[in-house]
Amino acid sequence: MVQSSQLALNIKNFFIEIGELAYFSSRFFRELFSKPFEFKELLRQCYNMGNKSLGLVLITGFIIGLVLTIQTRPTLEQFGAESWMPSMVSISIVREIGPIITALICAGRIGSGIGAELGSMRVTEQIDAMEVSGTNPFKYLVVTRVLATTLMIPILVFFGDTMALYGSFLVENLNGDVSFFLYFDKVFHAIEYSDLLPATIKTFFFGYAIGLVGCYKGYYCEKGTVGVGIAANSAVVYTSMLLFIIDFIAVFITDIFI
């Protein structure tokens, strides 16, 4: 009995959270289109999220491309279809692996960062201080960050994809003496707009989710240092979950229309 009521409470809390997140999201759009616009802070956040995540994304992308190719090669070799390697790897990278891996990495780095930063700002009354000094903290902190992730994640994904393809090329080159131009000719022969564009649109939503959940968790952080930890942690967990849900929906929609 106790357990079932606990479960009911958890479910209720879950829906409350979803509702709050939806409200938070709608507030984001309301504030996004009202003046003033914190352009300078947006640039700063873009720099923090874009440039500073670049190294991580490049390394991860490179390794993923490398590993994917090394793992797939034996199977294709059995069919004598090594020449299909570039097309196969490139499609899986561009459609799925590049976006989701980059987004997950950024959820870990940026999402938790936002959660912790806003959380500690809330706890140490910095958000209140901002409000008092006439700056709308939602605009200054949340809008800029969510916008920055929404804009930066797609660009990071381009970098990640490129690096993954390059990693894949290296393996091919070492194994089969495939030239750079042949490899990328094959890659771009295999990829179509119907691969690249839905995947790119998807990444905007990924970025939006990372920023939104991170900000939501941080902005409504509970008091105390424990609250900050929870905010950072749950930001990553919720974001990762949300990323897969968005990915599922995106694939579903792509499948229907293309």
Partner: peptide, 14 residues
């Protein structure tokens, strides 16, 4: 400057 480079290179790749 760095951000500009980052964005331009990213968009160039795309």
């Amino acid at each position: 400057l760095k951000l500009g480079l980052f964005v331009i290179i990213g968009l160039l790749l795309f």
